[in-house]
């Protein structure tokens, strides 16, 4: 579904992502781990089409990076608020669905609003949302069109415990429905659900490694991360 080859990105002379290569099949979830500033969010920004790679290539479901086909196949949760201050929650979901050319979206939107506990604020402009509510709305936007590729950047940031559980469930369901998922998080307990884990060392990527194998070898993802970061 997602095939990334030698992807690099620099801001001016500052190299943030260096020669990253990985692929994610349908129905699989990859967790990208690493310290702040290592290039996790930049990698997802490039894959989402928000910024261009400095070098390297990637395809989404065989479509070239930046094409309309690739864009419509992608659901993206950015690490920022990523919402329109003057649109209501419901309008956000409608906009996302229409831009993905999804016709049958209303029932899915209602379900997401209910499960992500946005029903009380759905008719309010997003400027009135708390940080956690903005994150939930961003999650709903990514899921409303049932995109076959989900790029999810720190989805648990600022979200309460119940919300973390709901988002984890929704991601698991999307994977069961055949979506390929790339997730970044510092919440290692939540990253355990991923099929594979890759760790940024400096600005290059180590992995992906099967999660089960890492857990068997190191006991926990925290230990695995420390080991992979250090070596």
């Amino acid at each position: 579904m997602l095939d990334v080859r030698g992807l690099s990105r620099a801001y001016g002379r500052h190299l943030v992502v260096s020669e990253v290569t990985f692929s994610v099949e349908r129905g699989r979830m990859l967790a990208l781990l690493g310290p702040n500033g290592c290039g996790k969010s930049t990698t997802l920004k490039v894959l989402s089409g928000a910024i261009a790679p400095t070098s390297g290539t990637f395809t989404i479901d065989g479509a070239a990076a930046g094409s309309d086909t690739a864009r419509r196949a992608t659901g993206y949760v950015p690490d920022t608020r990523g919402v329109f201050p003057r649109l209501t929650g419901g309008e956000h979901l409608e906009l996302a669905a229409r831009l993905h050319h999804t016709s049958d979206w209303q029932a899915r939107a209602d379900e997401l609003i209910d499960r992500l506990a946005l029903d009380e604020v759905v008719d309010l402009p997003a400027a009135a949302y708390s940080h956690g509510q903005s994150r939930r709305l961003s999650m709903a936007m990514a899921l409303v069109s049932r995109a076959p590729l989900l790029l999810v950047d720190e989805p648990f940031d600022g979200v309460d415990l119940e919300g973390v559980d709901t988002i984890t469930e929704l991601l698991a369901e999307a994977r069961s429905d055949g979506a390929a998922i790339v997730l970044t998080t510092h919440l290692l307990d939540a990253a355990v659900v991923a099929d594979e884990v890759a760790v940024f060392r400096g600005h290059t990527l180590d992995g992906p490694h099967p999660t089960d194998a890492l857990l068997a070898e190191h006991g926990s993802l925290q230990q695995a991360w420390k080991h992979l970061s250090a070596t």
């Binding site: 309309d68 864009r71 993206y76 950015p78 990523g82 919402v83 906009l95 996302a96 993905h100 990514a142």
Partner: peptide, 16 residues
Amino acid sequence: SDDPMALTAAGAGRSF
């Protein structure tokens, strides 16, 4: 103009 990340999250492309 909108926050570029909000546009990307919504799936906005060239025409939008």
